[in-house]
């Protein structure tokens, strides 16, 4: 993997080198190895994901709904981008298209220069409603992707164990999903996605189902996890506060069809202080703008 000590961008400073042993483990698997070799020449801060002129139209019996239109965005490796926008504007649709779960009507989605066709383990996803497999234990949920990739058993359990520890669930690794609280469930969701070393992780309001306090804890914990593993993340949220607290850039969408209204660079180093004057000011400015977007026509 690349080291990025020479990268001048301050906003990536808080991230250290990725967990070396986890990557060694991944390299043993030929499938993963090929992929990591291919993308290894993309350095942190260089473009990883390229979305051009994305257009998504849903057809129903009565009408056509244009959910996303002329959506263009470049995501750099190692970046955490938030997407915010009015309810129903097409945020989930964008993420699902990147994940390959729906086919775009037009435009292109490229990862490392390659056109994305259908879903794949290079694009992980974390769901608002967790989407954990209820018949599997925490450990078995985390191992799912590695089972699929045919990674040997010992390596699987070793890697799963490490990521379960990383999200702070070692005491619950043999628990079943229904025995966990919402916050714990989403930590399993995070471990299940990150353990496969996806190139990009798509998070669709991952903390939306949690209460305010758990949500703040989860945000802090996510940042802590990101310090230990190298991840590129697209994070959909309704909360301006959450977006400002976490991201390098905030993408503001228009009402449906989703187009980019504005992209805001968040300049402060992490960890950030929510009560900081600049933070409060910026949050207010964005909220005002969102409200305007909602009221307009």
């Amino acid at each position: 993997m690349n080291k990025d000590e020479s990268t001048p961008r301050k906003m990536f400073d808080f991230r250290k080198k990725p967990m070396q042993s986890a990557d060694d483990a991944a390299a043993k698997n030929p499938k993963t190895e090929r992929r990591e070799k291919f993308y290894a020449d993309i350095r942190e801060g260089e473009t990883l994901l390229d979305i051009t002129d994305l257009r998504i139209v849903f057809k129903t019996d009565e009408k056509e709904i244009v959910a996303v239109d002329s959506f263009t965005l470049s995501v750099k490796k190692g970046e955490l981008i938030s997407i915010i926008g009015p309810s129903g504007c097409g945020k989930t649709t964008i993420l699902r298209a990147i994940a390959g779960l729906i086919e775009p009507t037009g435009g292109s989605i490229r990862i490392g220069g390659n056109e994305c066709k259908g879903p794949g383990s290079d694009r992980g996803m974390i769901f608002q409603d967790f989407a954990l497999f209820p018949w599997r234990t925490v450990r078995k949920n985390v191992e799912f992707g590695m089972e699929i990739a045919g990674i040997p058993k010992e390596e699987r359990s070793e890697r799963a164990e490490r990521y379960i520890k990383l999200v702070g669930l070692d005491k619950f690794k043999d628990a079943r999903v229904h025995e966990l609280s919402g916050g714990m469930k989403q930590r399993v969701g995070i471990a299940r996605a990150f353990v496969n070393h996806p190139e990009v992780t798509l998070m669709d309001e991952p903390f939306g189902a949690l209460d305010a306090q758990t949500r703040n804890i989860m945000q802090a914990q996510l940042l802590r996890i990101l310090q230990n593993t190298e991840q590129t993340i697209i994070f959909v949220t309704h909360s301006v506060d959450e977006a400002l607290f976490l991201s390098d850039r905030v993408v503001m969408l228009t009402k449906r069809p989703a187009r980019i209204n504005r992209i805001i660079e968040v300049p402060w180093p992490r960890p950030r202080d929510r009560s900081d004057h600049d933070f409060v000011e910026m949050r207010k400015a964005i909220l005002d703008e969102l409200e305007k977007e909602n009221v307009m026509n």
Partner: peptide, 8 residues
């Protein structure tokens, strides 16, 4: 969907 995004 979750299984698909995990490569299944």
């Amino acid at each position: 969907d979750a299984a698909k995004t995990l490569g299944a």
